[in-house]
Amino acid sequence: MSIVLLKDVQFSYGEGPPVLEGVDLELTRGNISVLMGPSGVGKTTLLRLINLLENPLKGGIVHNFKELSGDEGSDPLSLRRKMSFVFQEPALIDCSVGGNVAYGLMTRSGFINHLWKKTKNIFAFLSSNYRSVEKKVEQALARVGLEDYGNRSIRALSAGEHRRVSLARSLVTNPELLLLDEPTGNLDPRNTSIVEDIIREVKTRKTTVFLASHDMHQAERVGEEVFLLLGGEIVESGSAEKVFNSPRNKRTKDFINGRLVY
């Protein structure tokens, strides 16, 4: 059962050269899938297309989310609210950690208060579900190991903590599909293993994970299904074991052996 299906997706930025030239891809519900490929090959673009931040030039993307009625099934906003996207750069909003984590919950309840926590006494009456938001934020922060960080300003945090806040912000809405773009790029080994543990934990909550990474070892560690994007196409796909041990494509072999020239 697929959660996202891409059929012959083509894309380029403006008049620029084509980035994706006919991508076919099927994400299996409940899996941790890894999108591999060298830098600049279009991994981020592919994730942005799935998250409906870009529109394909050609081809189609079908999302199979639960609990979406007919109209909502084609509405980008409703579809987006079923998934979460953790960007390569955390792109946090300049407010508290709690305010960032609460953001996705607040967009869904229709009211955004960036001064969340600090002004809770003034704004609480506006948000009837304030208590439940607060509880969910605390739980999400606990999941990424940042208990009691809710009141801190994001300016006072390290890069690794920024990454974890951005993860918590995406987890708090319990998405059906979690998109991660190089979630451990630039992180030290300790933070990398924290993030990978979170990814495994997310899977146990029936969230499908799709992560882009140029790190093959990471793909091997966490991936159940692996896709290799080269030259604008998916050249290899299958279980991690199969792709790494007996790749069909010669370029896959070269990529795995680190000999690929691109």
């Binding site: 998250n51 931040l53 906003l77 987006r80 609210r81 979460s84 996207f85 960007f87 750069e89 792109a91 946090l92 909003i93 953001y103 996705g104 967009t107 869904r108 955004i112 912000r169 995406s170 809405t173």
Partner: peptide, 17 residues
């Protein structure tokens, strides 16, 4: 920063949000 706008969109913000 454009990335903050992207983040807002991706977190389910509508136009006004």
């Amino acid at each position: 920063d454009e990335s903050v706008v992207d983040a807002a969109t991706s977190l389910g913000a509508n136009w006004w949000q």
